[in-house]
Amino acid sequence: MQANEAAVAPAIAQEQRAHRDARDDRMFSWLLMGCALLVLVCLVGAAGATLWGGREAFSTFGWGFLTSSEWNPTDDVYGALVPVFGTIITSFIALLIAVPVSFGIALYLSEVAPPWLRTPVASAIELLAGIPSIIYGMWGLFVFVPFFSDHIKPLLIRYLGREAGDTPGSEHVSWIAQHLPFMGKLFNSENLFGGSVLTAGIVLAVMIIPFISSVMREVFQTVPTRLKESAYALGSSTWEVAWDIVLPYTRTAVIGGIFLGLGRALGETMAVTFIIGNKMKLSPSLLDPGASIASTIANQFGEAAGLQKSSLMALAFLLFVVTFIVLLIARLMLRRLAQKEGR
């Protein structure tokens, strides 16, 4: 009898432990699911709060809020076209500059730079990524904008656009503007201030280069050494190895890094507020002042009330939508690339 009880006791203890472990696993699973759902709740809550706050603007102006370029607090007439256009254009300029520069930095550090130089330059890039955006804005306002206005802007107008003369009808039209009229519109400005859509895009590019180049460098280092050495043994140059071996192997992560930088460019506030000029006027010229969604909210939200405040909340919702669309496009691109790699 005692022998049977002694044999059954370990089995009971083991069964109780199994039940306890199963209960703990369920609780742990619920906890993790709660953490994941918390992210979705915060996301939906942020979008819902901005949409609810902008309901008055959407109901007042309807779809015209998206297509109107007028922003007049005196008459309580508001349109989102200028800040949305400024946000998209500055981010596009930033990517246009930052992607090739970041690729060059990452390729140099992973393939060309001597070992004694790689660590200091990589550390400097990480430090640049940690600098607050307001520092970039102050540097842009007090250093880059005056330099751009005095030295770069006149050259762009003279050789790419239209330069106003001393008398009416005596303007100088560049050769490029004569043959490509749209270039004359892009680089034609009578504004004396250096702050513009172009300068904001350049400063944004300086801000996101550390992010993109750091991601590219890390993923370039994951390429197996035997693949690169095999290509070099067959007579490939460094550029051929980078283009035919490194990029195809890491293109998914590289695109992810690019969209990471784009996400920061879309939502940047203080640096753009300092530099873009904050003029609510739609202009085809990149050298004219403009506005972005974030800069408009930062400048006006503190004193806004009524319909103006609702319009700013509607702008915040539009920024959320634009960012969501960009990230959705990134996910679709990454999925298509993954499907092609699986073939």
Rank of each mutant, 00 (worst) to 15 (best):
M1C: 04
A3R: 12
A3W: 12
E5C: 12
E5L: 15
A6M: 13
A11C: 10
I12T: 02
A13R: 09
Q14E: 13
Q14G: 12
A22Q: 15
R23V: 14
D24L: 15
L31V: 10
L31T: 11
M33D: 09
G34C: 10
G34T: 08
A36Y: 09
L43R: 01
V44S: 10
G45Y: 00
A46E: 10
G48C: 08
W52T: 08
G54V: 11
S59N: 08
G62C: 11
L66E: 08
S68K: 07
S69T: 06
V82I: 00
V82A: 03
I89R: 13
T90V: 10
A94L: 01
L95P: 02
I97M: 04
A98V: 04
A98E: 04
V99W: 03
V101N: 07
S102M: 08
F103M: 15
I105W: 07
I105V: 14
A106M: 00
E111M: 11
L117F: 15
A122G: 13
I125W: 03
I125E: 04
L128Y: 08
G130I: 10
I134P: 13
I135S: 05
I135Y: 05
L141Y: 15
F144L: 05
F144T: 03
V145W: 06
F148Y: 10
S149C: 06
S149M: 10
I152L: 11
I152P: 02
L155E: 14
I157D: 11
G161R: 04
T167N: 15
H172A: 11
H172G: 12
W175L: 14
L186Q: 02
N188A: 13
L198V: 05
L198G: 09
V206P: 00
M207N: 03
I209Y: 00
I212P: 04
I212A: 02
S213W: 07
Q221G: 07
T222D: 09
V223T: 06
R226K: 06
E229Y: 10
S230M: 08
G235C: 02
S237T: 15
V246I: 13
V246E: 10
L247E: 00
P248W: 13
T250G: 12
T250A: 15
T252E: 14
I255P: 07
I258P: 04
I258K: 02
G263P: 01
L266I: 08
F274G: 12
K279C: 07
M280I: 05
K281N: 01
L282H: 06
S283R: 03
L287F: 07
L287Y: 08
P289H: 00
A291N: 05
T296L: 10
I297R: 01
I297Y: 03
I297E: 01
N299R: 13
N299C: 01
Q300C: 00
G302I: 03
A304C: 07
G306E: 02
L307E: 00
S310E: 08
S311T: 00
S311Q: 01
L312V: 11
L315Y: 03
F317Y: 02
V321G: 05
V322G: 03
V322D: 08
V326Y: 01
L327G: 02
L327S: 07
L328V: 14
G342W: 03
R343I: 14
